[in-house]
């Protein structure tokens, strides 16, 4: 059978997902921070970027990157091109989610940070972003699942992920029904636990049980200075 092929293809799918996510999380956060900037020009750049990418199909972006860029001598591998397309498109969506999260943190938090003598960077890193993360978690989690599913579009440039290999297998076996159902089941097997994980983590956040490791460390330090648990 084609199990080894599908196994490798699954790994490639995860590879695209991880790279695309990592890129879009970073770029999305940068864009979100730009959107809350005091400077109109910086806000403008981020807003224009978001509107363009939000309203362009990912497949078209992918084709521009993979087939278009070589005409100006930028030749990218399917892995890089695919991950890049996911990054630039999902960064637009994530930037909206993160912006809402950033603006959801009350201004008093920022002021309290300044009032206790923290620098702007320290305030963002220790106060604003952790709370933004909590506010954005549910929506971001949905995006993670979405990115995983959308990697299938990369089959259009022969990216070597699950759907690409399904097409190859079908071409050889003439069993499209069986093959595509199987591939669908593999996608589901990855996506379903992922969405459950997001839900689980969200309720852990609400219950305050999510920082177990961190709190154990603080507890140990408190005991070390003689404060009973």
């Amino acid at each position: 059978m084609y199990w080894p092929t599908l196994g490798y293809a699954t790994l490639h799918t995860l590879e695209f997902t991880v790279l695309g996510l990592a890129g879009s999380l970073v770029l999305g956060l940068i864009l979100a921070l730009m959107k809350i900037s005091q400077l109109r020009a910086i806000r403008g750049v981020a807003v224009v970027y978001t509107e363009i990418l939000k309203n362009t199909p990912l497949l078209v972006v992918l084709f521009v990157i993979y087939f278009g860029l070589p005409t100006i001598h930028v030749v990218l591998s399917p892995l890089i091109a695919g991950s890049l397309a996911l990054t630039v498109c999902y960064a637009a969506y994530l930037s909206e989610i993160f912006r809402a999260g950033l603006q959801g943190v009350p201004n008093g938090q920022r002021e309290a940070g300044y009032a206790v003598g923290l620098s702007t960077v320290a305030i963002y890193w220790n106060i604003i972003l952790p709370q933004t993360f909590r506010l954005s978690l549910a929506a971001t989690g949905n995006m993670v699942v979405d990115v995983l599913k959308t990697t299938s579009l990369i089959s259009a440039i022969g990216g070597g992920e699950l759907l690409t290999s399904a097409e190859n297998i079908t071409a050889a076996t003439f069993e499209p029904m069986k093959t595509y159902l199987l591939v669908g089941a593999i996608y589901f097997a990855m996506c379903f636990p992922l969405s459950r994980l997001v839900v689980h983590y969200e309720s852990a956040l609400k219950a305050g049980t999510h920082r177990r490791w961190h709190r154990r460390r603080v507890d140990a330090q408190l005991r070390a200075i003689g404060v009973a648990a």
Binding site: G108, Q109, E111, A112, A115, V116, G117, Q131
Partner: peptide
């Protein structure tokens, strides 16, 4: 600001 502390009406503790 470290020399001049401030206590707010709404406390502004860090909820996380």
């Amino acid at each position: 600001r470290r020399r001049v502390g401030m206590v707010f009406q709404q406390f502004n503790l860090f909820p996380h």
